[in-house]
Structures are given as structure tokens and as C-alpha cells.
Design a protein around this nucleic acid. Sequence first.
DNA 1: CACTCTCCCTGAAAGC
DNA 2: TGCTTTCAGGGAGAGT
Length: 278
Amino acid sequence: MPELPEVETVCRGLASCLEGRRIERVDVRRSGMRIPFPKGLASVMQGRKVTRVTRKAKYILMYLDDGHVILAHLGMSGRMVISSEKVSPGRHDHIVLTTNEATTIMFNDPRRFGLLTFTTDQELAGHRLLRDLGPDPLDRGFTPEVLSQSLRGRSTNIKSALMDQKLIAGLGNIYVCESLHWAGISPRRRSLSVPGLRAKRLVPAIKKILHEAILAGGSTLRDHIQPSGELGYFQHQFHVYDREGEECLRDTCIAKGVRIKRIVQSGRSTFYCSECQR
DNA sequence: CACTCTCCCTGAAAGC
DNA sequence: TGCTTTCAGGGAGAGT
């Protein structure tokens, strides 16, 4: 499922085939996904040159040369399938773009939790989907002090707090679980006990996990150009995520045969090791 | 305001 | 084997 590292990789893939190119054809194949496609979506994109493709948290931003910005979110099953050959769209290919270099980009999303809409340069920062987002965890400005400040006084558990996009924008279930494990912090711990020393471990842990995931995604980027491309899906070496009942791989746990646990917090599965995460 | 729950949707996997 | 049920997840909006 696409979280920040996957979205980052998707952005790089889109940038490589869209930046500086013109969108020649736009095929909108249904009325909407999580939200309806706005009126005039196709005509806004058609004939425009893409100047830049970037990311804000888990949102993809495609800047057009007339000041419009395409705003896309992959939800949990969304993919951007890039192909240099002619391909016929399938049931879940909801939007198909063709560039002046005959590259096809299909926004595929079986569960339709994703979205695609447009706004303008001017209105971007105040857009309702973006305005309440917290800092991006990979920004230089995301420091232990900043995290501490937003966790201070919060009584909810640290796992749910890190999932809250208003506090930090871009983490999802997988990378929250993995970051807490790397930092040795229990997901059950109350947020207000994290500021200070634990935040000093947690922030570098988050950055490290995200950077490694982006690197892993980056190495498979080449494959995305293939028609069968699996853009947005990567095999990662998880230490805790989806490993309930399996051994914790940490040095200090491996000899003891400690098992990964699964609990539910705020309606979401949390995977952790109760031995090395306190 | 802080926080949790529900819902949207489909495909994979588990259960019968 | 094949049908039915369960589960997963991001985030908006409702509910406590």
C-alpha cells in the first residue's frame, strides 16, 4: 500500500515521463473515485505541458504550464502504470493520459480509495485536502523538538498520534510500526511520555526507515517503465509489520525467540515486540 | 477540542 | 472444489 516512500517513488517515475512533456490525450473512464472527478478535468489537462511533479505528504502534485495543479492520492490500492507501448485500459484503469511522446500513464485503483482533482498554484496551500497537513517527516524542519511539541500533552498512544496526518504527514501503518520498532518505543506508550529523549531516538528512526524504503523503491524504478509495471508496489524487509507470531529479529531478542505481537489501536492493526519496545 | 468509530471498495485469503 | 465470509487500509465525517 502506498505510503510516503511509495508515493515518492511514483512521483519520480511520473516526473521522468511527464516533466517537460505535453498531455496530448486524457481519457476519464468513470465519474470519480473517492470523490467525484471535477467538471472539466480532462479539458484542464488536455494540451498542457507538465512543468513539475512533486509530492506533499502522500499527495502527488502535477504542475501544469498554465498555473493549474493536478492533485492525486493513491489511497491504498492506487498505482500509476507507465507504458511506452499502446495498451488497452482494463476495468480499474480510471484515467488514462497520453503524452506527446506516446507514453501512456494509467491511474489504476481497484478499491477507488484514491482521488484525482485539480486546483491552481494560488489556491494550493489553502486547499482543503492539504491545509491541515503536518510537517513532512523528511523535511529538515522535522526535528525532535518539533515532534515533541506536537506530542506534548497528548494522552493518546504514540502509534495513533504518528498516524495522525495533522501531526506528521506521510506515515502510514507500515512505517509507523517499523519506526517505533527501530526506535525501541512501545506503540502503546502515551504520546506525552515521548517528548525529550525518546523523540530524539524516534525522529532519526523515522527518517532512516523512510530513506531506506525510498532507496529500495528506487532500485526497482526501472521496472515501472514496463507495461506490466508494478509501480507503487515494493517488497520490503519488514521487521514487525505483518509478522505476528514470527521472531523478533533484533540482536537482543533473537536468542530468546521473542515473538512479534499484533494488537488493534484506533481500529488499525499494530505489530510490535513487547520485549525490545518499551 | 481530543479522540474513536464508521464507511467507502475490491481482491485475497480464510473458513465452511 | 467452490461458495461465503472476513479482513485490509487512508482519510472524511459523524459520534462520544
